[in-house]
Design a protein around this nucleic acid. Sequence first.
DNA 1: GTCTGACTCGCATAAATATGCACATATAAA
DNA 2: TTTATATGTGCATATTTATGCGAGTCAGAC
Lengths: 149, 149
Amino acid sequence: MPNSPEIQSDRRQAIRQILELGPAGTQQSLVDALTSQGFVATQSSVSRDLKELGAIKTAKGYELPGPGKGDEVAEVSGFLREIETAGPNLLVIKTAIGAAQRVALALDRSGWPEMVGNVGGDDTVLVATKNAAAQRNLLAKIDRACARG
Amino acid sequence: MPNSPEIQSDRRQAIRQILELGPAGTQQSLVDALTSQGFVATQSSVSRDLKELGAIKTAKGYELPGPGKGDEVAEVSGFLREIETAGPNLLVIKTAIGAAQRVALALDRSGWPEMVGNVGGDDTVLVATKNAAAQRNLLAKIDRACARG
DNA sequence: GTCTGACTCGCATAAATATGCACATATAAA
DNA sequence: TTTATATGTGCATATTTATGCGAGTCAGAC
């Protein structure tokens, strides 16, 4: 029983909030917490959500990386000029002259899993992604990072 | 077949070095890497080592938190005056006057798993640990952090 | 309307991780 | 030395997490 895309994003927002309060020991505990908030989800979905949110597992449980993860990209957002897809698994990012290396480095450090690798030239960065879905996600994430930066 | 404590610490050092090079996807891959370096270990031990090292699991695999984790404690090391054990699971930390709160906060943020909780007074912090082993480890970690700070 | 393609999800299960237990060694005490 | 206590380990397994697959839903094309 698939949900509307909205429900998914609401659920992920809820997970964010729960993790703000403190680490979640197991995915099951997150499922329970979500349930008590009226969300319906299984461990499977939570597993996928956590990956998508970029959560990390520490000795205490799941946590969201503090601000500073992904912010590397926000910091260079001023250099970005244009982003286009090229085929199903390549992004072409045009940057300010000479800024491509810096942008490429920031992307590397972001730790975003949909990115397989990238190369920075002078004013262009090529980003390889696993597939079209990853390509789409990554594009969305970069957009979001820019909105913040 | 238990090992001398030295082997354990060497192995953990080796794990540190391996993780410096890049994230390890699974614990088994770490076991293999260790084996090829002449260390004998099973997944069980690696699991325990990773917890002890404070490793985190990201979408890419196991990583060591960059410098900055545990450094919270290093930053307040100047306020520390004396550390003593009290029973098998309590540490009593004497600090500079008025600094106990700040030290307690730093300890909280360190994320060290052997710490169950702590309370800061004016010049004294009480730290509760699960047991004697955790007490010893924590003491060692604080010492190490101070050496750096 | 039907079709098609992209997407999300749960189920079942594969894969990975954590841990209780027993034993071997080390360490300390007597 | 002998004895007692503590620690580290592997094995076996419990627990937890990830994922292949099929079903359900939606949007857009026709």
